[in-house]
Design a protein around this nucleic acid. Sequence first.
DNA 1: ATGATATTGATATAACATTATCAAATACAA
DNA 2: TTGTATTTGATAATGTTATATCAATATCAT
Lengths: 130, 130
Amino acid sequence: MAMNAPAARDTAQRRSIRAALEEAGRPLGALEVLGAAKAGAPGLGIATVYRNLKALVAAGEVTAVELPGEAPRYEFAGKEHHHHFLCAACDKVYELGGCLGGLKELLPRGFKLGSHELLLHGTCASCSRR
Amino acid sequence: MAMNAPAARDTAQRRSIRAALEEAGRPLGALEVLGAAKAGAPGLGIATVYRNLKALVAAGEVTAVELPGEAPRYEFAGKEHHHHFLCAACDKVYELGGCLGGLKELLPRGFKLGSHELLLHGTCASCSRR
DNA sequence: ATGATATTGATATAACATTATCAAATACAA
DNA sequence: TTGTATTTGATAATGTTATATCAATATCAT
C-alpha cells in the first residue's frame, strides 16, 4: 500500500510563492522568489521559500533551472523545450523560445545523446538600453 | 610602473599538473588533476592543485569550464570555439568539436548576444559499451 | 654551496547555498 | 470552537568547494 503524502495545507506563503513564479514571466532564484512573494505574505522567510520550491519540484510542478556558476532558478514545468538567457548586467535569467538542430552532429562516435542545455549570455533589452 | 609578478619557479608539482591537463585530452576537475598529477609528483596535495590551477587560469593559459551543478573542469586555453559533453554514468567531461549556428534567432528584441555555452548530456562511448 | 624567497602539504577556515531544528503559529476536519 | 498535525520563521548546522595559514622544503641567482 502506498504511503499517503501528508495533507497539503493552503497557506498564504505557499500561494504567494506560486504566484511569484507565475507572474514573473521568467525563472526566479530563491531570493528573487522571497522578494516577490513577500508582497502576498509579509514576514515570509527564506526557509519557507526553499521548502516550498523543493516541494513544488518534487511534485513535478516546477523545474529547477541549473546554471553554470549560478544558483538555480525556478520556473513552472510543462513548457515546451526551450533555453535561457543570462544577463551579465542584472543577473536575471530570461526564457528563450525554440531550440537548435544538428546537435547529434557534434557527438563523437559511440556517444549517446540524452539531453542538452544551452545558455546565452549578454545583456537584456532593459540593460542594453542604458 | 608595473608590479612585477613573483618569479615563477619550476617545480615538479607544477610540471606534473600541467602535464596532467595536457595528457588528459579532456577537461579535468580539481580532484582528477590531483589523481593524475600524483604520478609525477608523489605526495601532491589538493591545495597545490587549486593554487596552480588558479595561477594558470589567471595567466590565461588554462580555462575554467563552468558546468551547471558540477564543479568546474579545467582545460588548456587557446583552442577553437567548442562545447562539452558530460557523461551521466562516469561524470567525465569530453570536448566536442564545432558549434551550432542560428543562435541570434533565439534572442528577443533588444537583447544583445555576448557568448554562449552548450552542454550535451548522455553516455560516453566507454560507458555506452557496457 | 649559500641564502633569500617562492612553493608546498596538512589542515583550519571561509564562502555559499541549502537543509535541519524547534517552538510558535496556522489550517482544517470534526 | 477545538484538537491535532502541518507549516512557518529564526537561525544553527550542513555540505561542498575553494582559500588562508604556517612551518617545512625546494628553487635558483649569486
